[in-house]
Design a binder for these strands. Structure first.
Lengths: 215, 215
DNA sequence: AAATATACTGGACAGTGTCCACATGGAGGT
DNA sequence: ACCTCCATGTGGACACTGTCCAGTATATTT
């Protein structure tokens, strides 16, 4: 056996077929374990069974590849949030439903951060104007990126009369700050050593704080 | 002129004198602009006017040097918080003073993150059990690290009767999450493009949320 | 079928962390 | 005063990285 890390599928055609996609997939896999720094161009080409320079036909630099991986990670986060939202039962009063929506966004966010810390850290590894024109690469199935999903939940709170309209402006910053900060502290901060059960409990308290603090 | 990056002070003695300290200082300077990834061992030795391998007499690896830089960054954060606390006028009622203390911790935290984003990102770049035995390398002049300074402020809130004792447990996680998350979003997240004035305003709203959400 | 554009290969270079063997010279004992 | 020890710094090397430049193979267009 030559080596454990043999990943090249021994392509026989000169062209790869879909190298761009293969590099992105390899990059995502690298980011999954290891975070942003683990996204190394040469390793990605190795896994795609191609010479290092071939990557430059599809990405102008290692950083461009990392950006693509980041977008994919952001989209995965959006999907996780959407999944949490989809699991909501719709029976109750609008106010309760709106509150539950905001909670679901936060819960999905935190679950994803714990389940995929590498991707989560990659998604936020580098500056990004999330405000700007929404690009589909960073969005989930609904076409909304995580920031927009949060905004939609807050809008629902206003519509349901739970959140006074004058408090709506900038409310996503408050909610996002609390949840994002907690996620960071959990995945590689002082709260790293807590058990999943403890994290769940404190996470819910963070969401309580947001709910109380925002209205 | 040979080069702009000439930093070697042309030592003539064989021994450096205090290479360990010089490497740490160079590392901190590198982290100040550029964050954790900019802490590169060879550059640090270059600035200390020494051959790369000399570093290994004082730090077992590049990572050990980075850890030392992190501790220094954490200590600088503690000092910034202490400075904010020291600026508090003491005249008022204990309850007001306790509230102001918590706010000062948060404000110091956010000010430092904005003033020294490189050091801030470095301080939290890598897992660290902040809970464990407090080491002086990460502490400010009071001997307390940032986490402990926050805890002390919360204790004062309890003593002043503002925060019910049963809410005290874990309260630092809530406060820390909100403030840390906001800091992250500001220095390299979606809030990066906001003006300092806007950041100040939203930052105060984050602290409002903490105050309301915690009690 | 010829020409062109596209995708990949090959070889190189500077930069990094780190390993090994070696040189230097200050501290302490005789 | 000398001599030896050994912590500290040097020199050279290796594998790894991102990236540049020049070539080569194949798909597409003419």
């Amino acid at each position: 056996m030559p080596s454990v890390k043999t990943r090249a599928p021994k392509r026989n055609t000169y062209r790869h077929g879909d190298l761009r996609q293969a590099l992105l997939a390899a990059g995502v896999e690298l980011a999954r374990n290891g975070g942003p720094d683990a996204v190394v161009l040469r390793e990605a080409t190795r896994r795609a069974g191609v010479v290092p320079n071939a990557a430059y036909r599809h990405y102008a630099s290692r950083d461009q590849l990392l950006q693509a991986v980041r977008s994919a990670a952001m989209a995965a986060l959006a999907v996780a949030i959407e999944a949490e939202l989809a699991g909501l039962r719709r029976g109750r009063k609008p106010a309760d439903f709106a509150r539950a929506s905001l909670r679901a966004v936060g819960t999905g966010y935190l679950r994803f951060a714990q389940a995929e810390p590498g991707l989560f850290r990659t998604a936020f590894s580098v500056p990004d104007a999330l405000q700007g024109a929404p690009v589909p690469e960073k969005s989930g199935n609904s076409g909304l990126n995580p920031f927009q999903l949060l905004g939609a939940a807050l809008d629902r709170l206003v519509d349901a009369g739970v959140l006074p309209p004058q408090r709506r402006l900038g409310a996503e910053y408050l909610a996002w700050s609390a949840v994002h900060g907690f996620a960071m502290l959990v995945i590689d901060g002082p709260l790293r050593s807590l058990s999943p059960a403890q994290i769940e409990v404190i996470g819910q308290r963070v969401l309580d704080m947001v709910e109380k603090g925002i209205e």
